[in-house]
Computed example of a mutant assay.
Amino acid sequence: MSKRSQPSWSPPAKTEKRPVLKLYNSLTRQKEEFVCDNGNRINWYSCGPTVYDASHMGHARSYISFDILRRVMANYFGYDILYVMNITDIDDKIIKRARQHHLFEKYLEENKSLNCIIDDATSVVNYYEIIVKEATDPDKKNAMQKTLDCIASAVKTLKAAVEDKDDAKITNAKCELLQSAKSPISEWLDSRFGATVTDNAIFTALPRYWENEFHKDMKALNVLPPDVLTRVSEYVPQIVKFIEKIIDNGLAYESNGSVYFSVSEFDSKNKHYYARLVPEAYGDTKQLQEGEGDLTDDTSEKRSPNDFALWKRSKAGEPSWSSPWGAGRPGWHIECSAMASDVFGNKLDIHTGGVDLKFPHHDNELAQSEVSH
């Protein structure tokens, strides 16, 4: 069978007669009769949010859908469900956003002079122009250009207010500039001072705040809470052990303090197929890089562009935890495999998550889980 097509899938054997329930199976891309592997008990793991910002409609759509399915299976079909969901509170987006928030608040507290603010804003415009020019997504590019135009206009207004020596206009123009330029100023500050942020507490406060907001949103939508909630930050020791098993099994390697999963080694093994869910995405460097994170620049460390990080060496300005490979943090994909295995052992009945996670996140989960025992 070609490695670039979906391999065959076999359901568990039936153990008792139950009403027929068919669910969409992303491994076969069609509805299949659901068979529980342990009689009436369902082990269900759901990928939770990466808490770096407010929830959006995509979150609502996903978790409402899972909630409806969960209620039907429990209340109508009578299944005993153990529903586990994770919170991703260690991630490149969180690290970058937490640093930027901290640096911007610090910038405001320093109460800069008007001339300094104008000079800084001019530097921000120059810095942001380069980012806009390099942007490839047309929608993002247009949005960024509007922000840039707004900042340039606000700088012009503040300069005029200063020349007029009108205190009221100066105050309003200053507030308008700092508000309209918050995101670009934060990015500019991060590019200059991000490496100086060393307090791990800074990287904890932001995700905890947005996690609480997420729970409020789910409660408002009447989505049932999970039976078990896991956080990446509370599972680092288990994640390290999980990675060690994969290394011991010859499917991962250490490089410059980071650890990578060897896709080619895995794919060469009998009955192992990389990208089982989305075989046509195999080798898609854009999606693979997005899965590695904004702060990752590891092409020289990897044996292959298809390999993905299990453990990332922490650079200056990033939180870190101790490991056999040095100070670092978990990669994104490894967290769900480690946490689900810790709660459920080596078998799941249902794994849910956003459709945008199928490749590379869920495909990477499948691969590393298959070789961790």
Rank of each mutant, 00 (worst) to 15 (best):
Q6T: 10
P7V: 08
S8M: 11
K14T: 11
L21P: 00
Y24N: 03
N25C: 13
N25W: 06
G39M: 05
I42N: 06
N43F: 09
S46P: 04
G48P: 04
G48H: 05
D53F: 07
S55F: 12
A60G: 13
R61L: 13
I64D: 11
I68L: 15
R71H: 13
F77G: 10
Y79F: 15
Y79P: 10
M85I: 07
N86S: 08
D91C: 05
D92C: 03
D92Y: 01
K93V: 00
K96G: 01
Y107A: 05
L108N: 08
E109N: 12
E110K: 15
E110I: 02
N111R: 15
K112I: 12
V125A: 15
N126A: 15
Y128F: 15
Y128T: 01
I131T: 03
V132G: 06
A143H: 11
M144P: 03
Q145I: 05
T147N: 11
L148Q: 09
C150R: 15
C150Q: 14
S153M: 02
A154E: 10
K156D: 12
T157M: 09
L158W: 09
D167T: 11
K169L: 14
N172L: 12
A173C: 10
A173E: 09
K174G: 06
C175E: 15
E176N: 13
Q179N: 12
K182F: 08
P184W: 08
E187N: 11
W188P: 05
D190P: 00
D190C: 08
A195I: 13
N200S: 12
F203G: 03
F214T: 10
D217C: 11
A220N: 12
L221G: 12
P226Q: 07
I239M: 09
K241M: 09
Y253D: 02
S255D: 07
G257A: 08
V259A: 06
Y260E: 05
F261M: 03
D267M: 00
K271F: 10
V278K: 15
P279V: 10
E280G: 13
G283R: 07
D284P: 03
Q287T: 06
L288M: 15
E290K: 00
G291K: 05
G291P: 03
L295A: 03
T296N: 02
T296A: 07
T299N: 13
K302D: 04
R303L: 14
S304G: 04
L310A: 02
L310P: 01
W311R: 02
W311Q: 01
R313N: 11
K315E: 13
A316H: 08
P319I: 09
P324Q: 07
P324I: 07
G326H: 08
A327G: 07
A327I: 03
A327Q: 13
R329G: 05
G331W: 00
I334A: 05
D349Q: 01
I350M: 04
H351I: 01
T352L: 02
H361S: 03
N364C: 14
V371N: 02
H373L: 05
H373T: 06
